[in-house]
């Protein structure tokens, strides 16, 4: 039997997770291809939940496919689109179908997505969602009513190590751990010295930290992220390295950089693993793993 994600986290090995983006529509062919490509090489596969507030095939649907095909799914759940009744109902459903890992997120704001006039729900926040799972594990729902059949999950959350200011984020990080987060995936990190400083604080908490890795595909992408993606900071030397790579070898350079970073994170035991977000370049994830020697 394959190892569960919780077992992988507790084994002390360097854990690797990645992400599957569900389709805009019912054509799941490419999602299934990505699942098959990665399922035997990594410890867990996240399925994003209407990522960037763009309406897509549901994350729970994606996790069921991963389950069927022999992978280890991690269900991403945001608080943006469902109130506490709907969230709890989906948690019951996921558990009943064998899903055992959940990543709790607040969710991006509605106006950044493709249904700009929709109502943002945010009945619960990410800390409260973590607590909800822990409450449901005791056989009760949020209303204090008995559940006929409880749940049990390996639950996690996220943090942004490069956030400015960092202190309010760290208070929330601590609240997430206290609320029952067993693992934390970080926003993309590129500056390992900054990340080490974050880890000095994070290490004090009983939680596994998976460093976020986003594949760079051009120096323009790095500049764009620095300007537009909150909490992402690509240092100038990496931007220069991407720019210097000859045309046609940019993605290969990005893979090399990602592999190099992962190798260092692992060799220097800086954190407990990585979470690779390929964002449309899932095909490159096996190459990143090869480059990292994993």
């Amino acid at each position: 039997m394959r190892q569960t994600f919780r077992e992988a986290l507790q084994s002390g090995k360097f854990v690797v997770t990645s992400e599957i983006g569900p389709p805009k529509g019912t054509n799941v062919e490419s999602m299934l291809h990505h699942i098959d490509l990665l399922k035997d090489r990594i410890d867990g596969m996240n399925v994003t939940d209407n990522q960037s507030s763009v309406m897509r095939y549901p994350s729970v649907g994606g996790t069921l496919y991963i389950q069927e095909r022999g992978g280890e799914p991690i269900l991403q759940m945001t608080c943006r689109d469902r109130n506490r009744l709907a969230l709890q109902a989906d948690i019951l459903f996921a558990y009943s179908r064998g899903i055992r890992n959940i990543l709790c997120l607040t969710g991006d704001a509605v106006p950044v997505g493709d249904h700009k006039e929709a109502k943002g729900v945010f009945d619960l926040d990410s800390v409260q969602l973590l607590r909800t799972i822990r409450t449901m594990e005791t056989g009760k729902d949020l209303g204090g009513n008995d559940l006929d059949g409880a749940v049990e999950f390996c639950a996690g959350a996220i943090v942004t190590p490069e956030a400015n200011p960092i202190e309010p984020q760290m208070i929330k990080f601590e609240k997430k751990v206290k609320a029952g987060a067993e693992f934390i995936q970080t926003q993309a990190i590129y500056d390992l010295e900054n990340f080490k400083r974050f880890m000095e604080v994070a290490r004090k908490f009983d939680v596994k930290i998976l460093a976020g890795i986003i594949l760079l595909t051009s120096h323009r992408m790095a500049i764009y992220m620095n300007k537009n993606v909150p909490g992402v900071f690509v240092p100038q030397d990496l931007i220069d390295e991407m720019e210097a790579a000859p045309k046609g070898t940019k993605v290969a350079k990005g893979i090399e950089i990602a592999g190099r970073m992962i190798r260092r994170l692992k060799e220097e035991k800086i954190c407990d693993g990585v979470h690779i977000m390929a964002i449309g370049k899932e095909e490159a994830v096996p190459d990143i793993l090869d480059a990292a020697g994993l």
């Binding site: 106006p111 926040d125 956030a163 309010p168 984020q169 909490g231």
Partner: peptide
């Protein structure tokens, strides 16, 4: 807070400003 959060900021905050 755009999202009405009660336990601290979301990950969208940047340099003390709002994601939206």
């Amino acid at each position: 807070c755009h999202k009405g959060l009660l336990n601290g900021p979301c990950g969208g905050t940047n340099n003390g400003k709002c994601e939206i």
